[in-house]
């Protein structure tokens, strides 16, 4: 009897073809499910965003008139102009169908379309967040990897530094960075968002660092612990025992396997990044949506507030859906439903 008899292998023929088909169908179903979940989340979020306005005290129409005591007719006129006299659910439907057509309504304070107000500010914020994301990825991964691979002093030093950095509020970090790099060394500007291209990046470096510092600490910590967990795995020892160089082992077997948790945490961090950008924008005098959000809440400019919150929610949900869709590519066991980490 040869050893072959004992080893089973996928049976060819009909069942194999069936399996092929199922394998092709399953990812499609998975993606469709995730996208449906995305739409549902956005719908629920839109309900929450729109109706929370009615929980806030104050009449937007009155605010527009800046405390002057208006004639009742004038008040009514403004109320009608902004559609505030209709029942709440009808306002909601109008608002929603408007969004779907690309019409976000009119801003009460700017007397402009909300989309125009937003589009003027959105690029700055997106660039700021994108640059911060680059810093977070590069510095966070780097610190985490170095900490995990250098047990003892290196690890402890980085860990303490990270704990300290994680505890620094963004505005304190902003002031410290400005004091050091703009006022002290004069390397970076402390104000404004610059003209396009490199000048923009140069202007945004300090804000992005200040914005990202807490998140760098978080990503580094997750990277470190996730890698530490993988380093103990037997497959890493197997790879080492086969004569692979340390670098290959770390890149192909440790970091590669540690990516899952890192990605999940990064997805969750996105929302925080968009929200804390408000503080940073104010500190560095950038006109982005974060600053706009704070101003608009102050002025009861509901159209703008709702639009910004929807954008933030959409970005958050979208990023996390992408993370969910990427996970099976990183760990094939998730797609098979047999994942057991």
């Amino acid at each position: 009897m040869t050893a072959t008899d004992y080893a089973q292998a996928p049976t060819p023929g009909v069942s194999a073809r069936k399996r092929e088909k199922r394998r092709a169908v399953r990812p499609a179903v998975y993606i469709v499910k995730k996208l449906l979940a995305l739409l549902l989340t956005l719908f629920v979020a839109s309900l929450a965003v729109f109706f929370s306005r009615f929980l806030v005290p104050g009449d937007p129409a009155r605010f527009l008139l800046r405390g002057r005591s208006p004639k009742p007719e004038a008040l009514e006129e403004i109320t009608r102009q902004f559609g505030l006299d209709q029942p709440a659910w009808e306002q909601y439907l109008n608002w929603l169908s408007g969004i779907l057509r690309g019409d976000w309504g009119r801003s009460l304070t700017y007397r402009q379309d909300v989309s125009d107000v937003l589009l003027g500010r959105l690029p700055t914020t997106l660039q700021l967040v994108a640059l911060a994301a680059v810093f977070i990825t590069v510095l966070g991964l780097f610190a985490g990897i170095v900490a995990s691979l250098n047990k003892g002093f290196g690890d402890r030093f980085i860990l303490i530094t990270l704990t300290a950095a994680g505890a620094v509020p963004p505005f304190v970090a902003a002031i410290a960075l400005v004091a050091l790099f703009s006022v002290g060394l004069g390397w970076f500007p402390s104000f404004g968002s610059g003209d396009g291209g490199w000048d923009r990046i140069w202007h945004l470096t300090l804000p992005a660092l200040a914005l990202g510092i807490t998140y760098i600490a978080m990503v580094a910590r997750v990277t470190r612990s996730s890698m530490n967990e993988q380093l103990l795995r037997e497959h890493v020892e197997v790879a080492t025992s086969r004569g692979l160089a340390r670098g290959s082992v770390v890149a192909r077997h440790v970091l590669r396997n540690a990516l899952g948790p890192i990605l999940t945490v990064s997805g969750v961090l996105v929302a925080g990044l968009l929200v804390s950008s408000a503080i940073i924008e104010r500190t560095f005098g950038l006109s982005g949506i974060g600053q706009l959000l704070v101003q608009s809440i102050d002025r009861l400019d509901f159209g703008v507030v709702q639009a910004i919150v929807m954008v933030v929610v959409a970005a958050f949900v979208l990023v996390n859906t992408v993370v969910d869709l990427v996970q099976p590519l990183i760990d094939p066991r998730i797609a098979a439903g047999t994942e057991s980490r």
């Binding site: 020892e237 197997v238 692979l244 760990d331 066991r333």
Partner: peptide, 24 residues
């Protein structure tokens, strides 16, 4: 040592499910 592991000696481990990288 790496030369030794590559050319002259190999090891088979106890649990192949833990010993082969599950994501590759």
């Amino acid at each position: 040592l790496m030369e030794l592991r590559r050319r002259r000696a190999s090891m088979i481990f106890q649990d192949p499910r833990a010993g082969i990288n599950p994501v590759r």
